[in-house]
Computed example of a mutant assay.
Amino acid sequence: MKPFIFAMVLSFLSRATAAPAGNELEKRDSTSFKLVAYGVASSYIDIFFSDGLAYAGDASLWEAEGNVVTDVTFLMENTELNTTATPSASKLDPSTLFYIRPVADKVLPVGFTKNGVDTPSDAVTNNFIFYGTYLMWEEASGTLTSSFRLLPMNVSGIYQLYFDYSNLYPSGYEIPVIKSVNV
């Protein structure tokens, strides 16, 4: 796909103006899934937990950088993304939730609640939905947003996940598509 067409598609998906009609919005069933990022590598890369924040890439490459680093799976409960560590030897607090920070004119880190890390007061853990397999967040107005960004870290192939609520498109960030895949 040509870069400008890909950018147009991402722009559309990042900020839809209204919820699609009919049954196009899917409720996840009660099975676990992974969140992955497409568009920055030759294949998708997994979203993982590190010290309360969300990263993408191979968690084993990041282990020396964080105190608690683990792959995670998700379970959709109502409109929240409940998070479980994998393998089961890794521990996360019960009811650990995935969050975004939808603050105007800021690009802010995405993370996880609990686990000995303070959750920011502007963190939002609900109103997540899936359009097919695409992760979206629904504002109170009904607007769907999916403005995730990845910032390359000092370890090759590892990115920190951010949410760009105002579609600022800051330089230095990659623009992924965040999707679910079955485990």
Rank of each mutant, 00 (worst) to 15 (best):
D51M: 06
Y44W: 14
S146A: 15
I5G: 08
M76R: 11
T125L: 07
V117N: 02
N115K: 07
A41G: 05
A85Y: 11
S60P: 10
P20T: 03
T125N: 02
M136T: 02
S171F: 03
L13I: 05
D51L: 02
D93H: 06
V107A: 11
Y99I: 06
Y38E: 13
V103E: 03
A21N: 04
V177G: 08
F6N: 02
L25F: 09
S147R: 01
N126Q: 05
Y162E: 06
K2S: 11
F98G: 04
N127D: 09
M1N: 06
K179S: 02
N182W: 13
M1H: 06
Y173G: 09
M136W: 09
P170M: 09
S43K: 12
W62S: 06
G22C: 08
D122V: 01
P94W: 09
A56E: 02
Y162L: 07
G111A: 14
D58C: 11
L144P: 10
T145D: 12
F148V: 11
S180P: 05
V181S: 07
A56L: 10
P102D: 12
Y131T: 00
E80N: 04
E80K: 13
T70M: 08
I45V: 15
D58L: 05
R15E: 14
Y134G: 02
T86G: 00
Y38A: 09
L144K: 15
G66W: 04
Y162T: 09
E174F: 07
M8K: 12
D51F: 06
A21L: 08
F6C: 12
G57W: 06
P102I: 01
M153R: 11
E138S: 15
G157Y: 00
K106Y: 03
V69H: 02
K34D: 04
I129Q: 07
T83F: 11
L13H: 01
I129L: 11
F163D: 08
T143L: 08
D29E: 12
N82L: 05
Y131N: 06
T73W: 02
T70V: 13
